[in-house]
Design a protein around this nucleic acid. Structure first.
Lengths: 153, 153
DNA sequence: TACAGTTTACTACAACTGTAGTAGCCTGCC
DNA sequence: GGCAGGCTACTACAGTTGTAGTAAACTGTA
């Protein structure tokens, strides 16, 4: 019965997950060091967060590097993001429109961004219906194939 | 020039604020009753949240209706939403693009939404200064009276 | 004016979060 | 084989959040 887990991340947990998603896999130390300057906390603090994430089933130990455990995310970035977005959307009454309006108003949205989104919507392969099997909301998480950290940014 | 502080809302606080924004002004009772069925909690629970919101400066008492206090939001919905969005955006590396991609992928975005956003961007009245270095998202988090020795328990 | 019902003001408290210290277990190195 | 250091496992603790109970204050009504 290990179906969909509705893991909820706290701010700091998200911060750590973000780092882990970025790195793909990492030791506590690496995670700590990858945290942006302003939020660089004690090693053991990061450790605690990672342990909690492990208990929540958001990460897992994937071998060791010397004496240190190496962790890997079990929850996919996409899934987590989607959840966050859904929550935000819900606050806006479920519609993306007000969100877009805000984005536009605050200058966070460029015409280019819009064009790209338009392109995505137009893509026939990207059926807008929940038909995509691979990226279907993490349901059957059979952790097996892990992909390298997406090279975005 | 109400330089509004960056008040951070918890999930439930947001829920209550949402109700208050919706109603404009309301008593505890009205707020409680306006909460969507599933999250209808005890009267005093709502009361506690409202009091906390008051302490945070997010709402204020605006007269009474009979024996009951009537509360009004001090924080504007827009401001709060913007903050939330900024946070989410930050998680996405600051760019709205991945956010849009998710929205598009999950079918939350329609072409109409895009058209509308485009319209907003085109509006000359809305000076969308892309140079607005308003990315000062929460840094000097002071706010909230530091009440010392609470010595609860 | 005396009540009964409605509200308010406080108080309580456990779970969750952020932050970190400490004792001991491994490992590579001499 | 013995150490120095890096890590791991635990433990700690205060502040935040979710949830609510209770006694005292207020108010409209008979």
């Amino acid at each position: 019965m290990g179906r969909d887990r509705h893991i909820r991340f706290t701010r700091f947990e998200l911060e750590v997950m973000k780092a882990l998603w970025e790195l793909g896999r990492a030791s506590i130390k690496e995670l700590q060091e990858s945290l942006p300057e302003p939020k660089r906390v004690a090693y053991t603090t990061v450790q605690t967060i990672v342990y909690r994430l492990e208990k929540k089933g958001a990460v897992e130990r994937a071998g060791k590097a010397g004496n240190a455990h190496v962790f890997e995310p079990l929850v996919k970035r996409q899934a987590a993001h989607r959840r966050l977005i859904d929550e935000l959307l819900n606050l806006f009454g479920g519609s993306a429109r007000p969100l877009m309006a805000h984005l536009a108003e605050s200058g966070k949205l460029s015409l280019d961004d819009l064009r790209e989104a338009e392109g995505l919507l137009a893509q026939p392969g990207k059926v807008v219906t929940p038909a995509a099997p691979d990226r279907a909301a993490g349901k059957k998480r059979a952790v097996a194939g892990r992909r390298k950290a997406g090279a975005r940014k």
